[in-house]
Amino acid sequence: MTKTLLISLLSVLFLLAMLPLEAVQAGDPTINGAGATFPYPLYSQWAYKYNQITGMKLNYQSIGSGGGIQQIKAKTVDFGASDAPLKAEELATAGLIQFPMIMGGVVPVVNVKGITGGQLKLDGETIANIYLGKITRWDDAAIKALNPGLNLPNQAIAVVRRSDGSGTTWIFTNYLAGVSSEWKEKVGADKSVAWPVGNGGKGNEGVSAYVQQLPGSIGYVEYAYALQNKMSYVQLKNKDGNYVSPSKETFMAAAANADWNNAPGYYLVLVNQPGKESWPIAGASFILVYKEQTDENKAKLMLNFFDWCFSHGAEQAIALDYVPMPENVIKMVRDTWKKDIRCQGKPVWK
């Protein structure tokens, strides 16, 4: 009996002795980040590639934007990532800066018999009325008026939306609030809202599964999901009155035409942006870092990585159906680094 006890005690001691070792290893130049799930596949791809080139390790935990914001505020990570930008005041109080890293677009998709991808045309007000529960059938006069050539069935519309809090919903509801004052008043825009109608699917995969299963449904998903599942996307009328299809080019047009110069802290919602080619529901995913860095070496490593992503990461981003930031925005971000990120008073990025 005593012997077994002794052995178990010894093994516990041994395990305890292992712990500090682990901690020491974590002290290597590893950059830690946490946050949004949407860009996770891309960030880990970039980190893998960058690690092969430079040996730097990036540990990114996709715990959700809310978690990422909390972690960076608690200073447990070197950078946070959020799908929705923080307001300038919130950034200032926390001593953080943010910059857009990568973009995606939100695409309305439908499952209506006889209608294939890109055939159906909708405008913002009609979509808002569908999501408000005011338009309930596919052969409603408002939809017919936008699609004179299409044979729309006399079928109920099954509204599908996200059930979980998400950056996708944040972008989509911001779009609805932008195009419909009634939506703005009754529902508002947030990562999750009190939806007037519809069923909620968990994640993009849940929404696309619901849309594919429910006849007569309409939902909204990330561009990559619409593409990979070959879903019937909708053409949307943009701010300039043009009908556009979702694509890398129309998302980039929205970002390039957006007025970043007058958006303090890059707080910009990429919905209803001007431009002939601009897709009206796009959004950027943001990185949050401290203005005042404590470890110059680490700060440099981190910015080097982001810099490499901007200059060499576009190809991988496109391969994974993300949309790289346009050149003019990247230039602004680099200027922001130069101007704002400091370590003991000295700029970190030159």
Binding site: G64, G66, I69, D164, G165, G167, S192
Partner: peptide, 18 residues
């Protein structure tokens, strides 16, 4: 009709509630 449960609400909304 669709509904929700306590556990499903937590699973859905916890990550992004800030």
């Amino acid at each position: 009709a669709s509904g929700n449960s306590i556990a499903s609400t937590l699973a859905n909304e916890f990550t992004e509630a800030s």
